[in-house]
Design a protein around this nucleic acid. Structure first.
Lengths: 377, 377
DNA sequence: ACCCTGCCCTGGATCGATCCAACATGGTAT
DNA sequence: ATACCATGTTGGATCGATCCAGGGCAGGGT
């Protein structure tokens, strides 16, 4: 079946050299080669050179599986990815994943992807259970709700740790991982538990929204509307608070200027229409580029031009923001920095399992494009 | 006993149960447990049930490292990802990666990401090379040019196979992998070598462009321009040929109606401006959504409305196409099918290393949105 | 000449699952 | 009653790198 040994057929790549091969060629013992690889400073210079020569000559690289087995570490980091949301402009994950792959690579780690799919992935063990009652009975550690996928990887020691990114949607994975004492770091602060003991990195959404709002105020706008997410979204409320802060600071009114909706283009469009009719704003700050595109739709229908007639600012600096005419001004999260901080925390955590780092809060930047419009004064 | 070596620290997760633990609990030998997991039909029903009960009770899952070491397979598939291209609308990879993770999971594989970074990733072995001449001398199998990253993973037996996606940019990885006899499947046909022996899956770009062009013709357009990629892009020329085919079929002229540029918004914008001035098309078919957004820019500058005044069709059905007003009609690649076919080929390849599957060609679909405009007749 | 220290190096055991060949068990043919 | 077979089960060896305890050797002190 799937796991059959691969007998070396004629057309097959030759097996990679092993530590023993290198040792024989260099005329030393295995341990010496191992030291040359892992603790070069333990060897005399000439021995080291000889071993390295042999390593180069054979193109030797340690067998991952053997090393993993012995050291009880896989040097793999698990990352659960969300399904791509069709019809939205959310491109954050894409950039983040890339940054994470790059950064963790420099630290000697690779990223292993998995999804929240319900079907048991590696269900060799759970194959045909004869008596369903038995399965239910013994299933004391079943992967519940949001922890889908994490469990298998952890139990099979496939990964050393996890990077959790969906802390803002809901927190079951975090709670589950914490309870399991599984090593993980989070992109996203622990909203519901301010003194959570796991390392996390987040971007200050309030600062981002404030940046956006202040930018518009400085252009001369005074009637600036907010379109954000529903009240049960911590991130949404956080970003909204930045808008409120900026407005209050300049003594501008926020009453009737805010709308909280689903994160879809259609919702943004409807919200923009209502706001334009009732509050008559000259500018919009949105919790996402998706919502901002909703505003674009409404403006488009009414023959208004983003930028020239009504200013619009989005959030996340998606590809949409970068390419749509006349360019959508947007708040950009420094995902590269996030990845760097996460990996740093990860290394600390794996070195000292009890590590409790301080949460790291990063500040986003504003990318100004045409939709900001001209200065009004 | 065996586990005594590592004194369990207070705050540490308890080590997962092993095969031996299960065997002891179930009162059978290790091999019997192994059989229960891998060849359940070899056991008597009652024994199987007893073992499975023990497995459930302990929450046992085979240790990956040990299994990998013994079976010489990691059940990991390597995927090299490209840096996100800022300022473009290319969102294909995002969807593809997700589809691939999902599909390969069902086949018992996980996806391992890596990048084309130049720095040696896992350079334990290559640490401080004393004599640079030595390194160069022995470096007979150095990872050259486009194969960066593949080499380490292969030599360290970290992955079983690769999925290669960048065959259209240039082919060094493919040539390198083939020469190495490394197992891989490609998303993208082998343009330069029609009788390449590796499994591949691709999407018929010509058919996609033809679909788009025909759609516009049926709306009543006769002057349909093409904005594509430079002539050295196989994919670009392939897509272009679909436009030519559709035009010729209806006896429509293509002279002066085509432009070949870089894949950037700015290029698309310039190309659209020139074409509008000289060839006066009423519709554009573009090789990418990025270029289509360039057309949008030009229309926007001239006070023209996509859809109502000039029809535009893009390629890849990016998030931009889905969210920009009034919606950009676009050709969508069936990446989910691509992933499914790739995984199918991968399984065949890993089961029979000499497997040479037929290339699989899939047909894209057209997603019609506002930018198609109304019927002209 | 002796011992001791420090530096390298060595062989054997180990991680956990699987492969292998041999063995137990119950039932059937001789 | 003995030989035989099929079905299940068993302990030992194995994959390749690392951990561990012990051993060889040169140089310095007495």
């Amino acid at each position: 079946m799937s796991r059959m040994a691969h007998p070396r057929l004629p057309g097959q790549p030759k097996p990679p050299p092993t530590l023993a091969d290198v040792a024989e060629l260099a005329g030393v013992s295995r341990q010496t080669v191992s030291n040359a690889v892992n603790n070069p400073d333990l060897l005399r210079a000439d021995t080291l050179a000889r071993v390295q020569q042999a390593i180069q000559q054979l193109g030797y690289l340690p067998n991952r599986a053997a090393r993993n087995l012995r050291t009880r570490a896989s040097h793999l980091i698990g990352l659960r990815i969300q399904p791509v949301q069709e019809g939205t402009a959310n491109a954050l994950m894409d950039r983040f994943v890339h940054a994470l792959v790059d950064t963790s690579r420099e630290a000697g780690y690779h990223i292993l992807l998995f999804t929240a799919d319900t079907k048991p992935a590696d269900s060799d063990a759970a194959a045909p259970v004869v008596d369903p009652a038995v399965a239910r009975l013994g299933d004391t550690v079943a992967p519940v709700d949001g922890a889908a996928g994490y469990d298998d990887l952890l139990r099979s020691t496939a990964v050393d740790a996890f990077v959790v990114t969906d802390t803002y949607v809901s927190n079951p994975p975090v709670a589950w991982l914490r309870e399991r004492r599984a090593p993980f770091v989070a992109f996203g602060r622990p909203w519901d538990d301010p003194d959570a003991r796991h390392p996390w990195v987040d971007v200050d959404g309030a600062a981002g929204a404030e940046l956006a709002t202040t930018h518009l105020i400085e252009k001369g706008h005074t009637r600036i509307a907010w379109i954000g997410w529903r009240k049960d979204s911590w991130i949404g409320e956080d970003r909204r608070s930045g808008w409120v802060r900026a407005m209050r600071e300049r003594g501008l009114s926020t009453t009737g200027m805010a709308s909280r909706v689903e994160d879809t283009v259609a919702s943004g469009r409807t919200a923009a229409a209502h706001l334009l009719d009732e509050a008559r704003p000259t500018a919009f700050v949105c919790a996402s580029d998706t919502l901002a595109m909703g505003v674009f739709h409404t403006l488009n229908e009414r023959g208004l031009r983003p930028g020239d007639d009504v200013a619009v600012v989005g959030f996340d600096d998606s590809q949409v923001a970068q390419t749509v005419p006349p360019g959508l001004t947007s708040v950009r999260q420094p995902v590269e920095q996030v990845a760097a901080e996460l990996v740093k925390a990860l290394e600390a955590l794996l070195a000292h399992p009890s590590y409790v780092g301080p949460g790291v809060m990063l500040t986003p930047t504003l990318h100004v494009r045409g939709s900001s419009g001209p200065d009004l004064r």
